[in-house]
């Protein structure tokens, strides 16, 4: 008993230590975002700001008029990409799993094959294709190429293959078409898989840096990670502003994480176990 509680104390010690390691960088950034520049420049290491101020946040919103625009761009792209992915990946996954059509096997093979190809290889040709479409510097240039995701088509196929057939049989007897069955019966029951997708695709898109860097060159079209990087370029030694901007950027992702965190863990376990 005592041995057990001793080892428990030890484990708690480890967990708390690692929690500290995890949280301190965030807290330090948060604290810097409430400090005036003078306090930061003085090199003091107080976690609680000596002269607490909201001025940094205020400054960002008033002096960096594009900040809201970047936020908006990120939201449009991330939400748009997520919603379309949920729909299109599920549709394709369902077709591959359940519908017998000529070429079914071939397309499935092709999707598995492209899964092996790393994304970087497509970056530069994608840039050239978007250029010829005239889509550089537009939402379409960021959203359309990511409307579907081969990994999640694959995942959805695996999910639908194990899906009970009886429901579809019943729907067919009720006279529902494929389309109706899919939207009314199948999709509502695919929630866990959709949840996992939502989180991964949203987070991936929200945090993406390389693709927007290549596609968006007009500051008005930047997404937040690019804006943040540009902001850093301009306010190179103004760590108070940089940290405040970072905090604003991090909040939505953390909120979604808090919101969906259970599905998040499931989703990862799912992706790891496949």
């Amino acid at each position: 008993m005592t041995k057990n509680s001793q080892s428990n104390t030890f484990l708690y010690g480890l967990l708390i230590l690692y929690s500290g390691v995890t949280v301190i960088p965030f807290l330090w950034a948060l604290s810097a975002s409430f400090k005036p520049l003078a306090e930061i420049a003085s090199g003091s290491i107080h976690f609680i700001p000596q002269q607490f101020t909201f001025a940094n946040y205020q400054y960002i919103f008033t002096q960096e008029p594009l900040f809201m625009r970047w936020f908006f761009n990120s939201a449009v792209v991330a939400i748009g990409v997520t919603l379309f992915n949920l729909l299109f990946n599920s549709m394709a996954g369902y077709a591959l799993a359940r519908i017998r059509f000529p070429g079914n096997q071939f397309w499935f093979f092709l999707i598995v094959a492209v899964l092996v190809v790393p994304g970087q290889i497509t970056l530069l040709p994608k840039f050239l294709i978007l250029k010829s479409l005239g889509w550089l510097n537009s939402y379409a240039g960021l959203i359309v190429p990511s409307l579907v995701n081969a990994t999640f088509i694959f995942m959805m196929r695996q999910f639908f293959i194990n899906f009970p057939k009886e429901l579809e049989e019943a729907a067919a007897l009720d006279g529902l078409s494929r389309l109706e069955t899919f939207f009314k019966i199948v999709l509502p029951l695919a929630k866990p898989a959709l949840a996992a997708q939502t989180i991964f695709i949203f987070m991936g898109s929200w945090n993406e840096f390389l693709m927007p860097l290549v596609v968006m060159s007009d500051p008005e079209m930047f997404t937040l990670p690019l804006g943040l990087n540009a902001f850093k370029g301009q306010y190179i030694s103004y760590w108070n502003y940089i940290m405040a901007a970072s905090m604003i950027f991090t909040l939505p992702a953390l909120a979604i994480y808090a919101f969906f965190n259970r599905y998040f863990i499931q989703g990862i376990a799912f992706s790891g176990g496949k």
Binding site: T22, P25, F26, T250
Partner: peptide, 8 residues
Amino acid sequence: MPTVTSSA
């Protein structure tokens, strides 16, 4: 938390 925060 770090995993969901953007690398930027």
